[in-house]
């Protein structure tokens, strides 16, 4: 029972963590991307499509789907970059526009496919990989080492992001872009270029996070399948205080809450599920307000940078 809940926690945390890590990097560079929900939705749709059209190659189909998911996230991020960085539009407005766009676009495409394609729209999903020896460990083996490949890769990404942000030159510059873009611009770094790169990376990760939903979680697409996960990823970044390791912790914590909720539901305990769904957002507000340990956002977060000003 507990084993199952914890395994579900790790599985559920993966798409949240993927999207949150991208959001983390872009926010540390000063770009707030609330189009993350839209990017995940695009990833979910194109992940399914990529895998669906290559069903003939069962070995490669999930990977091609994942590639398509990443590329669709990247393309959405390119639109974001053109409008916010090239045309100096407001990040909040563009983010909202992209989420709205994805909500409409994915449903239009999905409905069209349902009209045109005769067989059921199913993707070839990733299989679970039972790591030799490690998966034999009692309890932990099942929770940690019997998951699909994206889960492993995602959790491996956490230390990489940590190392990048805190132990490389470029990571230092990224953080500086989010705190004092003028200062880092003065010493010769190209703020717009760094922000563009971070944003594109965030787009790819959000797309992959969406792709996980239609390639590993369930083998189909549904336009409501992201169900606010993009915004939960946003709360995770804040709850994790813009730090990769803490963000990973926050993703696991929130995912545990959702997994628990699902079990509670199955056992018919008298707690309404909305309490669990509401909790991440309330916790996030509490953290922002400083009731549960103060979180400081990057100082230049969401501010358009104009090198000529």
């Amino acid at each position: 029972m507990l084993e199952e809940v914890l395994a579900a926690t790790i599985r559920g945390a993966t798409p949240l963590l993927l999207a949150a890590l991208g959001e983390l990097i872009s926010q540390r560079a000063g770009v707030i991307n609330i189009g993350i929900e839209g990017m995940m939705l695009m990833g979910a749709l194109f992940g399914m499509i990529g895998s669906f059209y290559t069903t003939g190659l069962p070995m490669f189909a999930p990977w091609i789907g994942l590639l398509a998911a990443g590329v669709s996230g990247l393309l959405t991020a390119i639109i974001f970059v053109i409008f916010t960085i090239k045309l100096r539009g407001d990040q909040i407005v563009i983010g909202t526009a992209l989420t709205l766009f994805a909500l409409g676009f994915t449903e239009v495409i999905n409905q069209r496919l349902l009209q045109v394609v005769e067989r059921p729209l199913k993707s070839t999903a990733f299989n679970d990989i039972h790591l030799p020896l490690l998966s034999e460990i009692p309890i932990f083996g099942k929770i940690l080492f019997s998951q699909n490949i994206i889960v492993y890769l995602t959790f491996l990404l956490v230390p990489c992001v940590y190392f990048f942000l805190y132990h490389t030159h470029l990571g230092l510059r990224v953080r500086a872009c989010g705190e004092h873009p003028n200062a880092i611009s003065t010493v010769g770094s190209n703020v717009l270029l760094i922000r563009t790169a971070c944003m594109l990376f965030a787009g790819v990760l959000a797309g992959l996070g969406g792709g996980y939903l239609s390639l590993a979680d369930v083998p189909y697409f549904n336009s409501e399948m992201t169900a606010g996960r993009g915004f939960i990823a946003l709360t995770i970044v804040i709850f994790g205080k813009w730090h990769p390791i803490k963000t990973c912790g926050a993703a696991i914590l929130f995912s545990f809450g959702f997994a628990l909720e699902y079990r509670f539901q199955a056992f018919g305990l008298g707690i309404q599920r909305q309490w669990f769904m509401m909790l991440p957002f309330l916790l996030c507000l509490a953290v922002l307000a400083g009731f549960v340990g103060r979180a400081e956002a990057p100082k230049a977060l969401g501010k358009t940078f104009d090198p000529q000003a």
Binding site: L87, G89, I94, F101, L103, G104
Partner: peptide, 30 residues
């Protein structure tokens, strides 16, 4: 066509609104 096409249209309008009010499209100089 899925009725949600209206959201796509709204989003496109919003993007053009931002594009058209962008200083960089209209004035060469900021």
């Amino acid at each position: 066509i899925s009725g949600k096409v209206t959201w796509m249209m709204q989003a496109i309008i919003l993007l053009y609104v931002v594009g058209f009010s962008s200083a960089r499209l209209f004035n060469k100089q900021p």
